[in-house]
Amino acid sequence: MSNTFLSDTWVIARRGLKHMRRQPEALSDATIQPVMFVLLFAFVFGGAIAVPGGGSYKEFLMGGIFAQTIVFGAFGVAMSLSADRNNGAIDRFHSLPIPRASVLAGHSVANLIRALLPIAFMSATGFVVGWRIHSGFLDILGAYGLMLGFSFAIIWIGVLLGSLVSTPEAVQGVAFIAIFPITFIASTFVPTSTLPGVLKTIAEWNPTSSLANSLRHLFGNPGGIAPPGSVWPIAHPIAYTLIWAVAIVVVCAPLAVLQYQRSIKS
């Protein structure tokens, strides 16, 4: 039985990828939205935002948009899962002679592949608007590796969300009131040092900031590692980001699987 796990997972993942191709509007958070943010911030607000230690704002911006887009990835998983829970697809899969874990695994694989799309897309857009990488091969590899790893962790938040919240509309609501602020109260668009009081503290400890700063550091862009004496997360962004990635997987993956199983039980 379990010898069909991998092939069944792949069949269900292929279905998920077809869904994405045929619903371009559902892909907008991974395609159009980041491009809009790049253009908006690079050309409209960009001139007014100073990067600490000098340097190009466009180069500062890219790490932030990468991080934001990756965190938003949770939304896509949650949407596709809750849609399946509501339209009977999960029941159909469960009436077939496949290991039930392959349904969730298929979703995850499809969404991991989906996460690669905006990363590639953003890299190209960034290049067009003047983003340049000033680091070596290993650092670049590290940057893309970190993005992939964090995308994987984020999927489990998406599964948890998709299992907890009953309808796709509700997922949209949660995304708006939770995920959106998380990606904004961070060093996504402006350096944390420019934020006031409590927002600054939140931003400094927000893993979106540390992910953005890690990418800036690894790409050799401005705004990477904060000077010594800053709070630990922004002084050690890569370590802090990795700790978050591991913690999310360790905590959220089992919770997500449990909650998913409960959500499909009755």
């Binding site: 092939s7 069949v11 279905r15 045929r22 009977g88 159909r92 899969f93 009436s95 077939l96 002679p97």
Partner: peptide, 29 residues
């Protein structure tokens, strides 16, 4: 040993007729 048609025809709207049936066949190995 069973085939189930659930109450609200759970065909996959984003797959074609042929893809729907092929997927089920693949999942029946």
């Amino acid at each position: 040993s069973l085939g189930l048609a659930a109450q609200d025809a759970t065909v996959d709207g984003l797959l074609t007729g042929h893809e729907n049936l092929t997927m089920i066949g693949e999942l029946h190995h």
